[in-house]
Design a protein around this nucleic acid. Structure first.
Lengths: 340, 340
DNA sequence: GACGCGAGCCTTATCGTTACAGTTTCCATT
DNA sequence: AATGGAAACTGTAACGATAAGGCTCGCGTC
């Protein structure tokens, strides 16, 4: 603790009671101009800052929000974090960052710790969330909002993107260009979004009268490396003319995989991603992708959490935000004779 | 505040004093096995969690570390953050994340706020740090470590990378390949590291008997976009055969700039970066770059901060970590006839 | 001149936890 | 049986800030 100066010291030095100092510092009525001036002067001279722990103890609030992400590596989580931070800045709430490192026990541990009055609420990004953990959350009555949840038995306030339509539109874009042999890269299997996105892909294909070839579908962990590896296999074994990936990093991996196999993107091979991470715009060629408004989502989730903390009811337990197709240069008409 | 259950309630329910509950919960001696069992049982049943604010108030410590970054967008800061988080996990300290958004006033504000006993220490990543702010820091006696500082009048405990040798080695790599017309992209001008890196570049050139052409040197704000723009100008106006950038993002921009001008990297044009961000390995071609061990730096800085908080003296006020050249595929022998 | 009133300030109690200094219990010694 | 002493447990007083209520003036009013 840095601020050694207490309210009592200021009070003594200024020749008033601690209560008066408190009132002055907090701008409450009940002090003359003269006293006000003197107290402020002394407070300034001594470098007094009210102690946050003491204040929180009294107020029963910490002014802190806990954010728990799966890890601290993903641009995805970082973009959301930015949105959250942006919203919190005006609310005078601070942000406590935590990672579960994909470990359910650690996640529960973190929530347990945070709920000791350390935070006023938690924001979970694509968490593991075992039933046990959810129970703990409810029991502690800790305000909480989940972004992009796993499949939950017990409902929690949650925010997700319109994965279904997003992926339908993304797929349709390839269909409109004339692609028929389209491969699909699923994300992590226990996320709700992974199956919903795939559903969007399937429906788009079906409604266009196209077959989904199960050999052209595979799963990945959202990483560039796995995207590269899996796309390499899919392309060399089954020759699709395009691929849709459930996440940008996998899509970027797929682009480089195609390129490493001697294909030119988009002339010989088209790629569609999902997320619109900053890298998507900065890759070469620019990645055509379904945009998740991550920053916006962070803001929305934070706002919802703040109102929960204020004790308000949420209008909707499940919030959904819209996606948007961003067409760049990784998609084009299929090559005349099929891939390579 | 979520945890409604207090130590007094547990004490009453278990038929002991609050003190005993405290001792049991904290694993201190002075309680029989029998009492221990009973207290733990009651605590579990009621869902008791010790209140952190109260504990901190007593202890005069918050268990929180504040991290202040320039913004929340950079992979650079994120990598350091990861290292910090990694180190802090074992130290039972939580991480409070803040951004100054490149604004000196806001930075000072944040530090002022954090030093109200909210945090036990702060970690500053490439901060603005006006003299005023430094004074505030010292006055509050707030333990603090700075990573990659601006030029400081008053010394603060700081950690930086061996920018000088890193850049000398990176430049030497191009010289060894046979390049002589090498352009240089400086980073943000008020960072200490920007001039030190440039010094490394200059010395490497001079010692190899090469001229540094001032028309081949320009500055940027570390971004991909500015790297792209500036490299486009430098290449088209002055035809260097290679470029060294003071940061990876600028280097990636330079690669794409060269490519957009019809050059093949590395056959026609070589690029060397500085940082070794994750993107460097995932770009195509892989970026040859000078690696800063960011994760490591985060850990080291956190460790130093922790010992400052423990009241220990630092062995060195200025810590420096080594860099390492990572050769990938963005560098090669210069094309026979010079660029394009 | 007595009374009421309100501005200005102070005292007390409290938030939940824990350090410190007891007090009680009970067993081992002599 | 008396004594010593450790182990087990409790009461009190903080940590620093603040809400609620109380006291003390000085002024206006009748």
């Amino acid at each position: 603790m840095a601020g050694r100066v207490t309210i009592a010291q200021v009070a003594e030095e200024a020749g008033v009671s601690a209560m008066t100092v408190s009132n002055v510092v907090n701008g409450k009525p009940g002090a003359s101009e003269e006293t006000r001036r003197r107290v402020m002067e002394v407070a300034g001279k001594l470098g007094y800052r009210p102690n946050v722990s003491a204040r929180n103890l009294k107020a029963g609030r910490s002014g802190l929000i806990g954010l728990i992400a799966l890890d601290l590596t993903s641009q995805y989580g970082l973009e959301i974090l930015r949105g959250v931070a942006h919203e919190l800045a005006d609310a005078e709430q601070e942000l406590l960052v935590n990672a579960s490192y994909h470990d359910a026990a650690r996640e529960k541990d973190r929530i347990e710790f945070l709920s000791r009055g350390l935070v006023d609420g938690v924001l979970l990004i694509a968490p593991v969330l075992e039933d046990d953990t959810v129970k703990l959350l409810r029991r502690q009555k800790l305000p909480c909002v989940v972004i992009d949840p796993r499949r939950l038995e017990v409902p929690l306030p949650r925010l997700s993107v319109d994965n279904y339509h997003g992926m339908r539109v993304g797929t349709q874009h390839l269909i409109d260009l004339g692609h028929t042999r389209i491969a699909y890269l699923r994300g992590e299997e226990d996320l709700e979004s992974t199956s919903v996105r795939f559903q969007g892909f399937e429906d788009a294909m079906r409604l266009a009268g196209l077959q989904v070839d199960p050999r052209l579908v595979d799963s990945c962990d959202f990483s560039y490396a796995c995207g590269f590896r899996t796309a390499t296999r899919l392309i060399s074994e089954h020759r699709p003319t395009a691929i849709v990936a459930g996440a940008d990093l996998m899509a970027l991996g797929a682009i480089d995989a195609a390129r490493a196999l001697g294909l030119t993107v988009p002339a010989d091979f088209s790629v569609v991603g999902f997320d619109d991470l900053p890298q998507a715009a900065q890759s070469f060629p620019g990645l055509t992708t379904v945009r998740q408004p991550l920053h916006d989502m962070g803001q929305k989730a934070a706002r919802a959490l703040l109102s929960l903390i204020e004790g308000q009811q949420l209008l909707m337990e499940h919030m959904e935000v819209a996606t948007e197709l961003v067409v760049r240069n990784s998609t084009a008409l299929p090559a005349a004779g099929g891939a390579a």
